Amino acid sequence: MGHRLQRRERATLILPNGLPIEHPVRAWRQTGTLWAIDDLIATAEFLVSDRGRSPIASVDELAAEVDALGDVRGGVLRRALAQVRGAVRSPRETRLRLLLLRAGLPEPEINWPLRDHRGVVVAELDLAYPRWRVAPEYDGRVHAHDATQFAKDADRWDLIRALGWDHVRVLNHHMRNGGEPAIAKVRSALICAGWRPGDGRHVPLSFT
């Protein structure tokens, strides 16, 4: 696809095989003309998360690129950046968090370290509501074919429940049809734990 040339220094990265590619920060802004806001948020969270190595970019760098060349489509890039959170591990985790927030549920903590009575971390919760001890988690079952990994996962779920938390597993089919099944599962768990609508942090998010 053609792109309008800009009078500024090129910003390319060279892959190990010698192939030059557009710098991810500039590429992210360019996708703003085509992608839905959730895709922009998920991609930005991938760029700014460490995932065991240095982040590819920072939120400040993404914002600076938008400031330099301008926003697109009614300010979709700045609206996306306002909803970006760090330390996110997967696009599905991003989408689940956005679903919950847009449904009026509190904003969950990300990668919450769950500790036992000795202070030892026994699990890192993808999304967590410490106040209500509810832990929503998207389960993609990428390890379903691996019996050893599945056993480790099952033991982890038992540890979470043993510490008094409600572990809410969200599977792919719960995310279909607007994600209402996923929202219903988490809302029910929060209500059972004492949450009431309007209680806790809630940040209104844009749908477009």
Results as ranks from 00 to 15, higher is better:
Ala128Gln: 10
Pro136Asp: 12
Gln83Lys: 05
His23Val: 13
Arg92Phe: 01
Leu99Trp: 07
Trp157Thr: 01
Thr33Ile: 05
Arg4Ala: 14
Arg196Ile: 00
Val121Met: 10
Gly2Val: 09
Ala87Met: 12
Asp126Thr: 07
Pro136Thr: 12
Pro16Ala: 11
Gly70Asn: 08
Ala162Gly: 15
Arg8Asp: 11
Ala123Arg: 09
Arg102Val: 01
Val142Glu: 15
Gly198Glu: 02
Thr12His: 12
Asn17Thr: 09
Trp165Ala: 03
Arg201Gly: 00
Leu19Phe: 07
Arg97Leu: 05
Arg26Phe: 04
Ile160Pro: 13
Arg85Ile: 07
Asp139Val: 07
Asn17Lys: 11
Leu159Arg: 15
Gly74Thr: 04
Thr12Lys: 06
Arg156Tyr: 03
Tyr138Thr: 05
Cys192Thr: 14
Ala57Phe: 08
Trp112Gln: 09
Arg89Lys: 13
Ala11Ile: 01
Ala154His: 14
Asn172Phe: 02
Gly164Ala: 06
Met1Gln: 10
Cys192Asp: 14
Leu163Asn: 10
Val122Pro: 11
Ala11Pro: 00
Gly104Met: 03
Leu98His: 13
Leu15Trp: 01
Arg4Pro: 00
Arg131Ser: 06
Glu124Val: 15
Asp139Ala: 05
Ala103Arg: 02
Ala44Met: 10
Asn172Cys: 02
Arg187Met: 02
Val168Trp: 07
Thr43Asn: 10
Ala44Glu: 07
Ala42Arg: 11
